[in-house]
Computed example of a mutant assay.
Amino acid sequence: MPKSIAQEENMAHLSAERGKATRRRLLDAAVALVPEVGWGGVTTRLVAERAGVAPGVVHYHFASVTDLLIAAGLGFTAALLDQLAAELSARQDVGEAVDWLLAELSRYSGTDPASLLVVELFLAATRLPELRSLLGEQVGRFRATVASWLTERGYRGDASAAAAMLAASVDGIMLHRALDPGLDLAALGGPLRAMFGEGTS
């Protein structure tokens, strides 16, 4: 018997959902693999094995492993930056926000999977113009959100420059944590608070 329109629509919906789930597994596999083997070490075979799919499925969803890695990396950093921006913006006091940020960064050792993924992503961005542009847009949006938040909190200096300094501090702290695991993040609170305190009302 021919399928009804409703049956065909339901099958199409299920197929689309399976496709989304498979794509999600591929992205998750790439996010997990980059810290383990490095950006250049990720292959179609490794991704397929980690995601539990046939190798051909990888290229059905992504034109190349590089495209997959870019999508996976940018998805990770978008979520991370959005969370940081939201948490900072929710705090009324700049000093309180700095303390929260340092406490949050203390969760990362600099050699943990998340930190390694971000480092690999930044390094790849120096070689891939598309990634550099898209990652730059993400960082730019984060800095713009922080700049607006600083202005709303009475910061009287160059809020855009201050936001850039804060973003660079986050990156720098994570790099230094990898080299100096004993780095006392709490001790950095004073200098950071002083930097922003001088420009607030």
Rank of each mutant, 00 (worst) to 15 (best):
R143K: 13
L179D: 04
L134K: 10
D184K: 03
L80I: 10
Q83P: 08
A85F: 00
Y108I: 00
A72K: 08
D171H: 13
F122R: 14
D158P: 08
L179S: 04
D184W: 06
A164I: 09
G95S: 05
T126Y: 14
F142K: 00
A159Q: 05
L74A: 09
L179G: 01
G172P: 01
S106G: 12
D180N: 00
A90K: 14
V118Q: 07
G154S: 09
G73W: 11
T151L: 05
L88V: 10
Q83T: 15
G189L: 00
M174P: 08
L135K: 02
L188E: 04
M174R: 15
G157L: 11
A167I: 10
L102E: 05
G157V: 09
V119M: 10
V146A: 05
F196P: 05
V118C: 07
T151Y: 09
L175V: 09
G189R: 03
D112L: 03
S160F: 01
A114R: 13
Q83Y: 12
P113F: 01
A147P: 05
D93E: 13
A144S: 15
S148F: 10
R193E: 08
G190T: 07
A168D: 09
A186W: 05
S115C: 01
A164P: 06
Y108N: 00
R156A: 15
E198L: 11
L134W: 13
L81A: 14
A163V: 14
F76T: 03
L123N: 12
F142V: 02
F122D: 14
F196R: 07
L185G: 07
S106I: 10
A178H: 02
E104Y: 15
T145Y: 01
D82W: 13
P181A: 05
T126G: 09
M174T: 15
Q92L: 07
A164N: 11
G189F: 01
G154F: 04
R91C: 02
D93G: 08
Q138S: 07
G73M: 04
G197M: 12
F142S: 02
G110D: 06
T145W: 01
P191R: 00
S106H: 15
E87C: 02
Q138M: 07
Q92G: 08
G172I: 05
L123V: 02
A86D: 13
P181M: 06
V139K: 03
D171L: 14
A159W: 05
M195C: 11
S115G: 03
R107I: 09
G189T: 07
A159N: 07
P113Q: 01
S169V: 02
L80Q: 12
R156K: 12
P181V: 04
Q83I: 12
W149S: 15
A187G: 08
L123P: 05
L105Y: 04
L185V: 15
L116N: 05
D99L: 10
V139W: 00
D158C: 11
S160A: 11
E130H: 01
A90H: 13
S148I: 08
I173L: 06
A86F: 03
A161L: 15
G154L: 05
A124R: 10
L128E: 11
V170A: 07
R91A: 02
E104V: 10
G189D: 02
W149E: 09
E120C: 02
R132Y: 14
D82I: 06
T145Q: 08
S89V: 11
L80E: 13
A147N: 06
L88W: 11
